[in-house]
Computed example of a mutant assay.
Amino acid sequence: MKLTVIVDSENRVTGPGEGEYILIYEVNGDAVGLIGKEPNPALQAEMHRGLYALRRVKELGADSLIVSEIGRPGFNLAKSLNLKVYIVPEGVSADDAVKMVISGKVNVANAPTHEHGHHEHGLEFR
């Protein structure tokens, strides 16, 4: 499975339109390895920035995406691209976020974190 994480310059998980990089992980059972890092194309977009990130994630062959937030347009696009979206608390490191997903501490998201703009949200984790 290929898993991607959107991160800032300090490798903390962010939203798809804000993160500076897309990290690509290969997950094979318990083995997890970082296989790539590239600039997030969302930062070059003038509108609908997160959608550019999601399209690139799919082009990379990923099955899943880890973010700290995602709006309705991005969530809907992820669903249409058959991407599983995992939402972790803002500021979590990429490595910790991947561990949370693999260990089952985070479930696949079933709704966006916000409708329009950026809003604080409460999330529960096991």
Rank of each mutant, 00 (worst) to 15 (best):
R126S: 12
H116W: 14
P16R: 08
A62V: 14
I6W: 04
K84I: 10
R12M: 04
N107E: 13
L77K: 02
N40M: 06
A42T: 04
H114C: 08
L81V: 11
Q44L: 14
K105S: 06
E10H: 10
M100G: 00
D8E: 09
G74R: 08
S93L: 12
G33S: 15
R126I: 13
N110F: 10
H116A: 12
D95T: 13
L51I: 15
A45M: 15
G122R: 13
D96G: 05
F75Y: 15
F125R: 04
V108A: 11
V57K: 05
T4Y: 03
Y52N: 14
V67C: 00
G15C: 03
I70A: 02
S9H: 02
A45F: 11
L123Y: 01
L77V: 07
H114M: 05
Y21G: 04
E124N: 03
L34W: 05
L83E: 01
I66Q: 00
A111K: 13
R72E: 06
A94R: 02
A97I: 02
E59N: 13
G104Q: 07
P41D: 02
K84H: 13
I35L: 14
E18Y: 09
D30R: 09
S93P: 05
L60G: 07
H118F: 08
V108G: 01
I22E: 00
H48F: 15
I66M: 01
Y86F: 15
V98E: 09
Y25F: 15
L43G: 08
N28R: 15
G71K: 04
G91Q: 07
L123C: 02
Q44K: 15
I35C: 12
E38K: 11
A109L: 03
Q44C: 07
R49F: 09
G17T: 00
E120L: 12
A78S: 12
V106P: 00
L83F: 08
I102S: 03
G104C: 12
G91F: 11
N40P: 01
L81T: 05
V13M: 05
E115G: 08
R55D: 11
N76Y: 02
K105E: 13
Y25L: 09
P39H: 10
L54W: 11
V98W: 10
E59V: 14
R56K: 15
R49P: 08
A31R: 13
Y86H: 06
F125E: 10
E90W: 11
G104N: 02
T14M: 02
Y21F: 15
E38C: 09
N40T: 11
I24Q: 06
N11L: 11
S64L: 03
P39V: 14
R56S: 09
D30I: 13
H114I: 09
G15K: 06
R126Y: 12
L51M: 12
K99A: 07
G19P: 04
Y25A: 05
A31P: 00
L123F: 01
D8V: 00
K84W: 10
I35G: 11
N82C: 14
A78D: 11
N40V: 03
D95C: 00
S64V: 09
A97C: 00
G15Q: 04
F125W: 05
L65G: 06
R12Y: 05
K84V: 11
M1W: 09
M100E: 06
K79C: 11
